[in-house]
Amino acid sequence: MSRSVWKGPFVDPSLLKKVEKQKNEISRKPIKTWSRKSTIIPDFVGSSFLIYNGKKFIPITISEDMVGHKLGEFSPTRKFTSHTPADKKAKQVAEQSALKKDLNEKK
């Protein structure tokens, strides 16, 4: 069931405060937020966000089309994996092992 209209869109009060504060500043750093449940309201258009997905912050600039969606919709929380055909698999494994090697050398 959708949300009652009379309540208006839900935006985290803390996030609103952050956006308000940023409007007065000249240098516009992206706003770091954990509030994935907040609706994008027209005030957000043009500003950029760093949205937490449980592991890291996903950078996103808000465009006009995004109004009405939630912030969390733009920051996927799961990694999508699928089966790869055998001929591509060998290449993928080689890449991954090379990456691991690099990491070990750096350590």
Partner: peptide, 16 residues
């Protein structure tokens, strides 16, 4: 198409 272009979660589910 709008959902896919916006790169939303729902768009990605449509794509996959």
């Amino acid at each position: 198409k709008r959902l896919i272009d916006l790169a939303t979660y729902r768009g990605s589910r449509h794509k996959k």
